[in-house]
Nucleic acid binder design. Structure first.
Lengths: 341, 341
DNA sequence: ATGAAAGCGCTAACAA
DNA sequence: TTGTTAGCGCTTTCAT
């Protein structure tokens, strides 16, 4: 056992700083925590001692002593369909940069619904979407941990939620198709276990209904967001006896798959089929025809969630806010007016 | 406002468990830490008390007492080009799931090169790529923190590295093009500040050289990995007086951009230009022509890094390992034999 | 096999 | 304005 030298990186503690600067540890603590009641002269001495010794306070000791923690846990369901999407990275990016800015530690949990999260010592929780892991959310709430949920609008729970208006976004997309003259409009859903997919389906139905178009169940194709299922859906859609002339697809990556299938079957986009996606995934810009889609403010949603969490933590009580961010139609080249037929 | 009771979630401590099970806190501690010297009967009593009270030890107190931490920090440069790539998500995913499996806490740092990371209380560090943040790496090493670097092969540093054989992968890609009969082969580089891009360029040169093809500087187009620069590069490449018949592009997303530009200019892929990318980004499967590319074992690399870190932590001394994972050519449809011309 | 007691490094009353 | 001191919750000798 090379237990010989434990010394090399002997941690310097607040005591070392106190000694070096000739004050008590309390004063050092005050300086560290920027408490005003320290004579300028002492403050300077302490600060320089800190610098010289390269002192960094032990966060563990701080947290033990204060009972507070500035650790924020971001919970992302390790759910293939969702995780692999453009979505996850944007969320991580948004939350990550905002945490960095706010000096919060970001703990990342890629979890499945069954596992119990260790909540002890967590200052706040951000749940990115809720897919079967509602129990984890409720657990967090019960324990009184400041919590915010993103991309899932929990109407029944006393918790801050920040979500995108999926329903409105979908409705807008379908309305656009209708304005273009389409009547036979199909929808390829995502996994309706996710609220986002369910809401998009709802928006689709709403738009049809408001425009007096009768819903045809044959025009609705359910998937789990995967490309594989999108492919089957696209094939069925295109080979149907009375095929739709337009389709609203619940995600861009699936929409791209639909385009690919259409091409393989010799159809032209948008001549033979108009397509609207959802996400504003940069991949949609590639391909022969740029994809018309619905943009979600993901980064903003992620950043807002951290801010909201910070507010909750500072407030020291639960005063949930519900925020619904609008989604925006981005018109590109994958749709054209319906002409005759 | 239902904020009347703040009491409900009073943290239960080891003392509560001790009282409930009629033993000392020491014994409880022993049970928690699975130290054998506890009578079965007591063990059971403690365990059931733990369960009843839903006791979870305070990690902060544990870490304060032991001086050890099972927190792993993953440092990802907040560097646009890299962060936005397919790469980042795969790394996060791989590291995240492995940490979850190994019961390690994953702290995520999206950092820029200038910021000083707080290393105090960190059990281990994983640097995902080194882009200008070598100082952070050296700092970590100096402090004796178990550290592993992924996607950057640091030959000169006593640190564990796990990287992909970018040079070999690139060489393979270019060799393939040469075997197809191409002689006029261009290369669109990534940001050569990143080792990956530099190595890919090196592999490109190596392949040409070994096959006795003279390097033409005009065939090398430098970019920062962004789509914008890829676009300019593609335009210059295609509009050149003596254009290349094949191009090796340092990333799939750029390769897709090249394809888009080619189409816009009325060129056919692969008839007029053969293209090989790098990454095996799923987006490469869309588009009219599936992209031939070089696959990197990203997830595996990420997972290995956590395992290696765990090994280092357990070892309690620095015994760095250097691991180079092979990259694999994935042949799809974007290349064809060179025929006359 | 078990427990008492001394820390781990810091913060927060309370005194001075 | 500053210092003294009592914890925070746990681990770890050292006795027993």
């Amino acid at each position: 056992m090379t237990r010989t030298k434990k010394l090399p990186s002997k941690n310097i503690s607040i005591l070392d700083v106190a000694r070096k600067s000739g004050v008590s540890i309390t004063t050092v603590s005050r300086v560290i925590n920027k408490i005003g009641t320290v004579k300028e002269k002492n403050r300077i001495r302490v600060m320089s001692a800190v610098k010289e010794l390269k002192f960094q306070p032990s966060v563990f000791a701080q947290r033990l002593a204060t009972g507070k923690s500035n650790v924020v846990a971001l919970v992302i369901p390790r759910y293939e369909g969702v995780f692999y999407s453009f979505y996850a990275l944007e969320i991580i990016r948004g939350v990550g940069t905002m945490c960095e800015a706010l000096k919060l530690d970001l703990l990342l949990h890629l979890t499945d619904a069954r596992s119990t999260l260790s909540l002890r010592g967590i200052g706040g929780m951000i749940f990115s979407d809720i897919i079967g892991n509602r129990a984890q959310l409720e657990d967090s709430l019960e324990k009184g941990i400041p919590t915010v949920v993103i991309n899932y609008y929990a109407e029944d729970l006393e918790v801050s939620c920040i979500a995108v208006d999926n329903c409105g976004g979908a409705e807008g997309a379908v309305n656009y198709l209708i304005e273009l003259g389409h009547r036979k409009i199909a929808h390829i859903t995502g996994d309706v276990l996710t609220q986002a997919a369910a809401k998009r389906l709802e928006g689709y139905k709403l738009a049809l209904q408001k425009n007096g178009i009768k819903l045809k169940e044959e025009y609705i194709f359910h998937t789990d967001y995967s490309r594989g299922q999108a492919r089957s859906a696209a094939e069925n859609l295109l080979k149907a006896s009375d095929p739709a002339t337009a389709v609203f697809v619940a995600s861009d990556s699936m929409a791209l798959e639909v385009m690919a299938v259409a091409r393989e079957l010799g159809r032209d986009i948008p001549r033979d089929l108009s397509i609207v996606g959802f996400d504003d995934n940069p991949s949609g810009l590639y391909g022969p025809v740029a994809l018309t889609t619905v943009r979600q403010p993901l980064i903003r949603m992620a950043e807002e969630s951290v801010k909201e969490l910070n507010r909750l933590i500072a407030l020291k009580k639960n005063a949930p806010k519900k925020i619904l961010l609008p989604a925006e139609l981005v018109i590109r080249e994958s749709c054209k007016p319906f002409s005759g037929g």
